[in-house]
């Protein structure tokens, strides 16, 4: 296609949007609604996922050693654990640190009672490793492995927390995928319907073009420009709206629901939109392109 033909068709596509104002508005509104819903669910999913992730990071397996295990052996056990692929980090807690932590948890306001144990640490044999996992679903495997290490007396785990988090994460992923698939299907259906109506109004115009010798690409080009432009506008509007609303909602929720904000950190707006902007634009432009390209096909057989 010559550059002059390309610019002519490009201009015609934009002019068509204006000429068919009602059709263009209907398409943009449909696209805006779909992308807005998509963006809303995406933002929710990203925040839930981040919440689950931070909860997962707090899940640890505690490893205690046999009485009399040397410091060297404890260090080598630590190195061995650290090398496991499912392990994110390992923290050594000495007997003294364990006692300090215990005191804080159980003797708060009753320090005198605790002081009577100072000379004889009741947790003298409770030095341990706190092992944090990359993926909590791997907890079972890790525990089996840890229990088999020579010198390990006991392995404590929070089975319930790991299971609940893994199940919740899986459920969240499934729900999110299902919602996205349904939304995309609805968007494609609605937009192709709107495009069908728009094109059937202009089928006489298409037939005339074909009868005077226009090639399919020439007839199609302005419609595709139109579809892409509508897709672009229809995804840019909800993105701008969501960008504005996200910050407002995060501030509102943090202020009004202090409990929630203490439980989780909201994902920063830039981090959410780093993915949301390109995905939404590709979706909008892609649906606009596919909608006009394929709906036009059957009208080109003149």
């Amino acid at each position: 296609m010559k550059i002059s033909t390309f610019t002519y068709n490009f201009r015609q596509g934009l002019i068509n949007i204006w000429r068919n104002k009602m059709f263009s508005l209907a398409s943009i509104a449909t696209m805006t609604a779909c992308i807005f819903l998509f963006g809303t669910f995406y933002s929710l999913a990203v925040n839930f996922s981040s919440m689950v992730q931070s909860a997962e990071e707090g899940v640890a397996v505690t490893v205690f050693f046999n009485e009399g295990t040397t410091d060297d052996r404890i260090a080598s056990i630590g190195a061995e654990i650290q090398n496991r692929p499912e392990v994110a980090s390992v923290k050594f807690v000495s007997a003294e640190e364990a006692w300090e932590s215990f005191k804080q948890d159980y003797f708060e306001g009753n320090e005198e009672a605790a002081a009577s144990f100072e000379e004889d640490n009741p947790l003298a044999n409770d030095a341990n490793y706190e092992v944090y996992l990359e993926d909590v679903s791997m907890q079972e495997t890790l525990v089996d492995y840890l229990e088999g290490i020579d010198g390990v007396r006991e392995v404590k785990q929070s089975e319930l927390a790991a299971e609940v988090l893994t199940d919740f994460n899986n459920l969240l992923t499934l729900v999110f995928i299902a919602i996205i698939v349904v939304l995309i299907a609805v968007a494609v259906f609605l937009i192709s319907n709107t495009v069908t109506v728009g094109i059937s109004v202009r089928k006489e115009e298409i037939a005339i073009m074909k009868l005077i010798g226009a090639k399919d690409t020439f007839v199609r080009a302005p419609f595709i420009v139109e579809g892409i432009a509508i897709g672009f506008i229809g995804s840019a509007i909800p993105l701008a709206l969501l960008y504005f609303l996200y910050g407002r909602i995060v501030t509102y929720v943090s202020e009004k629901f202090a409990v929630l904000s203490s439980m989780m950190d909201f994902v920063p707006v830039d981090e959410v939109f780093q993915i949301l902007i390109p995905v939404s634009l590709v979706l909008g432009v892609g649906i606009g392109f596919v909608g006009s390209r394929f709906t036009l096909k059957r009208h080109l057989k003149v």
């Binding site: 296609m1 010559k2 002059s4 033909t5 073009m209 005077i212 010798g213 226009a214 090639k215 020439f218």
Partner: peptide
């Protein structure tokens, strides 16, 4: 338009 479809020059 009939000339544009033949990609005639401006």
């Amino acid at each position: 338009f009939a000339m544009r479809v033949t990609e005639a020059s401006k």
